[in-house]
């Protein structure tokens, strides 16, 4: 079964949508992608205060009379930070879902999947700060949720995603800097954005993240109308992030627009690929579960 965006949009709250997507992904996977919970022994380590008591190898204690703690692969579990672009342009989408909504579904599903396999998940919603927010966050970060791996945490992630509204200018670089700071050791950073950033600082920030040895995955969200530019009538195009506007005859500028867009996408893909950033371009009219499934399958294959 494929969850196309129109159907998904009718499913109600984000939790339900994200869960459905996750289930769809899981159904599609013949083998559990979860490795964190494997119990493969890695090594013994002499017990030190602070270690989990449940990990003390009592057999070794019986033999050696020393406390040794078993260390498993599980302990090398992922810390995944989801960075969702909450700028104004992400609110675009005249179809079933806006790019932000689509991104939220994808991020929610990923959070489910990650937590389900024991990984820790954090969330950053990039964008200007909420007016009534008491959190002290740096510029470009509207909302931050630290890493955790509990189911309740996932609910919180979903709640935050659901509350995200696309507005204000894009300042993805600020959010990514903040992510680099919070991600700590090598982790995974999943960025969901349209990269419509007039400051052009997003790509350097992404490359910087990758430079810090994080596994960076960019889900580049684009609306179908942004890809095809199907307008005919004279249109006054209004910027969703600032006051800019322009009157244009779409028929007259379509060719030129498509050229500009193609060049932007190719430049972006080339630069990020060169920087070893995992780049996936996702039109928001595609079924999110299929997208995630393909993504996971591809990463599985490359792992």
């Amino acid at each position: 079964m494929t969850l196309d965006p129109a159907l998904l949009a009718r499913l109600g709250p984000l939790q339900v949508r994200a869960r459905k997507v996750m289930e769809g992904v899981l159904t599609g996977l013949h083998q559990s992608p979860v490795h964190g919970q494997s119990v493969e022994f890695a090594e013994h380590k002499e017990y030190a205060p602070g270690d989990e008591i449940k990990h003390i190898d009592w057999r070794a204690y019986a033999k050696l009379d020393k406390y040794y703690v078993k260390r498993f692969e599980m302990e090398t579990n992922l810390r995944a930070l989801l960075v969702v672009d909450g700028s104004g342009s992400m609110a675009y989408g005249r179809g079933a879902m806006t790019k932000l909504q689509y991104g939220a579904v994808c991020a929610g599903a990923l959070a489910y999947l990650l937590v389900r396999q024991g990984d820790q998940v954090g969330l950053i919603v990039a964008g200007d700060a909420d007016a009534g927010s008491t959190e002290r966050l740096p510029s470009g970060v509207r909302s931050f949720l630290p890493f955790a791996a509990s189911t309740g945490h996932v609910q919180e992630v979903l709640r935050r995603l659901d509350a995200a509204v696309g507005r204000g200018p894009t300042d993805l670089s600020g959010a990514l800097d903040f992510a680099a700071e919070k991600a700590g050791r090598r982790g995974m950073v999943v960025v969901l954005s349209d990269l419509f950033d007039p400051t052009e600082r997003s790509l350097p920030a992404l490359k910087m993240l990758r430079g810090r040895r994080h596994d960076v995955l960019l889900l580049h969200l684009l609306d179908r109308e942004e890809i095809d530019f199907p307008f005919d009538d004279p249109t006054r195009f209004l910027s969703m992030e600032d006051e800019r506007q322009i009157d244009a005859q779409p028929r007259q500028i379509r060719e030129s627009y498509l050229q500009e867009l193609r060049r932007f996408l190719e430049d972006t893909r080339r630069e990020l690929t060169r920087a070893d950033v995992d780049y996936v371009q996702i039109p928001t009219d595609r079924a999110p579960d299929r997208v995630l499934l393909e993504l996971l399958a591809r990463r599985e294959g490359s792992a």
């Binding site: 419509f196 004279p234 006054r236 195009f237 910027s239 969703m240 500028i253 627009y257």
Partner: peptide
């Protein structure tokens, strides 16, 4: 004066084309 207003995400490219 007739053009219909449309809030558009990829206005940057419209601007460059225009």
């Amino acid at each position: 004066r007739r053009p219909r207003p449309l809030a558009f995400g990829a206005i940057e490219f419209v601007l460059r084309s225009q």
